[in-house]
Each structure stands twice: as structure tokens, then as C-alpha cells.
Amino acid sequence: MNLILSVAKRELSVFFDSLIAYVMLLGFLGFSGFFTWLYGNDIFLVGQANLKTFFTISSWTLFFFIPAITMKMIAEEKKSGTLELILTKSISDRQFIIGKFLGAVSLVLVALVATFPYVITLSLIGDLDNGGTICGYFGLFLMTIAYAAIGIFSSSLTNNQIVAFMLSLVICLFFHIIFDVLAANSTGIISWLFETLSLQTHFDSISRGVIDSRDLVYFISITILGLFSAELSLSKSHS
């Protein structure tokens, strides 16, 4: 466990030592804030004290930001050779992957925590739907772990960060929207299958305030599958 935390801690401190974390936080807060408070279907236009708009916007912002966070995590270590150095220390491939994963997830969590002022503001000016808000954040968290796992898997496949970024974006795109579109354009069992695969379906149902065990199983399965594939591809790269 200590080994995992060491890796996660290093990832976080490197993010905050460089500009990446600040650019990412600024971008995330800027986008989500702009569309939640100022533009389009913003809160004042809708006139309801809920953060539905914020959760939709955030799901899109994270869809771009998470691959950007994870792209270098393993690809860069492969390229610079530090992977060899680290994996010859007393850490297993699995611990290394989980550490990287925790590092990426914690950075996103910092970004999510930074949006708590929105919640406070909203609860001061209206009667906030507490359950909906908690579920919304929980939905974003589940989406984060799923996408972070996919991102780390993509990063483990290559030693080029750009390739890793594009790859995870493409994979995430399927879960984020393509399965949804395919489900809408087909019927019967195929439609059901695509709908089950679509992350949007599960995300919507959670952010509506219903935590169904099927949704939980869905997100957790993607996460575990992603991390497991990453571990496999990592151990294959140094067999």
C-alpha cells in the first residue's frame, strides 16, 4: 500500500510542481463556471437551484481533460527509460499501475472539490436539491475512475504521449457518445446492448439521483478492466 501511495504522491507533486495541474484546474473551473453561471442554459436561465448544467458540462470537460492527464503517465516513463528503473525496485507492475491511477484520480478530485463554492453559492440563493447534487458528484467521480483507467491503459500501449492521448480519446468517445448514438439508431437487443455499454445512460441515471447497483457495476467493471489491461500490456512490454 505504501508503494502505491508513493507513486500516487509523486504523480501529484509532479503535477503541482509543473504547470500542468494549474492549467488543468484553471481550464476545468473556467469552462464549467462559464457555462454554469454565465452562458447558454445557465442556472439563471433555468431558474432552478440544481447543478444539472454543471454536471453535464463537467462530464464533457473531464472527457477531454482526463486523457490529457493520463497520457504521459506510462508512455513517458517508457520513453525516458525510467520505467526500467522503477520496475526493478521492490514494486510490482500492479502496484505501479494502481499508484498512477490514484495519482490521476486525485488530481481530478482536487478539481471537483474546487467547484464546491458553486454548491455553497447555490444553496445560499435557493433551495438546493442535496441528494441530486451528491449523486451528480458521485456520477462524475465514477466517470473519472472509468476514464482514468482507460487513459492509463492507452498510455501503457505506446511510448508516444500524443498517440496515448488520441487513443484514449477515441476509446472514451465510444463510451461517451458513440454507443449512445448507435443505441438510438438500432432496435431490439442490439439497441439494448449499446445502451448498456453507453456511459451516458449510466451517468444520466446516477445524476438524476438514482444509484442503481447496475450502474455501479458498470463503472467499476470498466475501471477494473482498464487497469487490468494496463497491467497486462505493461508486463508484456518488459517480458
Binding site: 508513493s6 507513486v7 509523486r10 509532479v14 510542481d17 526500467e84 525496485k89
Partner: peptide, 21 residues
Amino acid sequence: NPLYLDMRVTDYLNYCGSLQK
């Protein structure tokens, strides 16, 4: 000699130590 160029020397040595339990 691969190294994390974005880490400070002391931090790096601490990190390597922690990975050796």
C-alpha cells in the same frame, strides 16, 4: 541512466527509497 528530470534531487532519492520499502 534514466532519471525523472522534473523532480528535485532530494525528492527523487526519497522516492526511490520509498519504492524499496
